Amino acid sequence: MTDLDNFIAGLPKAELHLHIEGSLEPELMFALAERNGVAIPFASVEDVRAAYDFSNLQDFLDIYYAGANVLLTRADFHDLAMAYFQRAAADGVVHAELMFDPQTHTDRGVPFEEVIEGLLSAMAVAEAEYGITSALILSFLRHLSEEAAFATLAMAGPWLDRIAAVGLDSSEVGHPPSKFARVFAAARQKGLKITAHAGEEGPPEYVYEALDLLHVERIDHGNRALENPALIERLASEGMTLTVCPLSNLKLCVVSDLTDHPVDKMLALGLKATINSDDPAYFGGYVADNYRAVAKARGLSRNDLVQLARNSFTGSFLPPEAILANIEKLDAYAAG
């Protein structure tokens, strides 16, 4: 490893855009399929990896939902999250905000309780063993109805004190944020933070809707905001965090090559960009891999990397005192 690789590995960082179901590695998929007696449409781990050749978001989602079928019990969700936390610890992650898709599971008959209790138990172990704090983001599937989202929010009722935020993911085009304005208003009234995927494949107008109709506190992806100068100025002036995912952008053809990735342009424009892994089992890398890949492709400096890590803390849903403590660790590391 180069000096820069080592610097990235040790850099204290938060991960703000991580779909826990998207960290299901093929080896664990096969192990859980066997444990639960679930048939999967692949003969080997190699077959699964060969299928990870996507031309767009929907290609990815099709295999993502197929893989999720092996997740049935709280032990499965615990094991899934622990596998992620082990990798996160090696990547210098000290805080992680895990997005989870309850509807992917409850629609298959898996009780909400099994999903969330498995994740919560792993989060407790991760803090005890690795010192990683974490939070949950309940993500609504935007290709489903507003009514289904309201039903999911109701299911979450007993655990709302252990859920930090709600989000919006899945197929973006044709499912604008406005479709979910009422359920996000209801979530906000319950004290939940608000985030949403916008401007990945969807147009800049979807970013405006996320801001004006959902009243988001950060934007997941946001790449296409760069097409609109007025929107860039607004995002910068409001200090809106963008949870950018370079290897995901490459794998889903949002950019044709990482040398074209706009993350340093975002920083230069005053945008509060962060680096995240999105669905790392499917997109070829966890968070440090994303830092390394885009640093190499775009020639990022150590100062750039420290700024991206700083943004990950200030853009997190941690309380102010925890943000400050993490930034002090980051500053000490950067000065070392």
Score class of each variant (00 low, 15 high):
T2C: 06
D3N: 15
D3Y: 10
D5H: 15
N6E: 11
I8K: 02
G10E: 09
P12W: 05
E15G: 02
I20H: 03
G22D: 01
M29E: 14
A31P: 05
A31E: 13
L32H: 10
P41S: 04
V48N: 08
A50V: 09
A51L: 04
F54N: 08
F54L: 00
S55L: 12
L57K: 13
L57M: 15
F60S: 09
L61Q: 02
Y65H: 14
G67A: 15
N69K: 11
V70Y: 02
T73A: 04
F77I: 07
H78A: 12
A81D: 02
M82E: 07
A83E: 05
R87D: 09
A88Y: 11
A89I: 04
D91R: 06
L98S: 01
M99W: 02
M99V: 02
Q103T: 03
H105S: 13
R108T: 14
G109R: 15
V110D: 11
V115Q: 11
I116D: 07
L119H: 09
L120T: 06
S121H: 12
S121C: 06
A122T: 06
A124K: 13
V125L: 00
A126Q: 07
A126N: 03
A126V: 05
A128L: 07
G131Y: 14
T133I: 07
I137S: 00
L138H: 09
L141T: 06
R142I: 10
H143W: 13
H143F: 12
E146V: 02
E146N: 10
E147T: 15
M155C: 04
P158G: 11
W159M: 03
W159I: 04
L160K: 08
D161S: 13
R162P: 05
I163D: 08
I163Q: 07
D169H: 05
S170T: 14
G174A: 03
H175N: 15
P176C: 01
P176F: 00
K179E: 08
V183G: 06
A185D: 12
A186T: 11
Q189N: 11
Q189C: 08
K190F: 09
L192F: 06
I194Q: 08
H197L: 01
A198Q: 10
E201I: 15
Y206H: 14
E209R: 04
E209P: 00
V216R: 01
E217Y: 04
R218H: 10
R218S: 09
R218A: 07
I219A: 04
D220H: 02
G222E: 09
G222D: 07
L226Y: 10
E227Q: 15
N228W: 08
G239A: 01
M240G: 09
L242Q: 05
P246T: 12
L247T: 05
S248N: 03
L252Q: 15
D257Y: 03
T259Q: 00
T259C: 03
M266I: 13
I275A: 09
P280Q: 11
Y291D: 09
Y291T: 14
V294I: 13
A295V: 04
A297E: 08
L308T: 05
A309E: 03
T314V: 15
P319N: 02
I323E: 13
L324N: 10
A325K: 08
N326M: 01
N326H: 07
A334H: 06
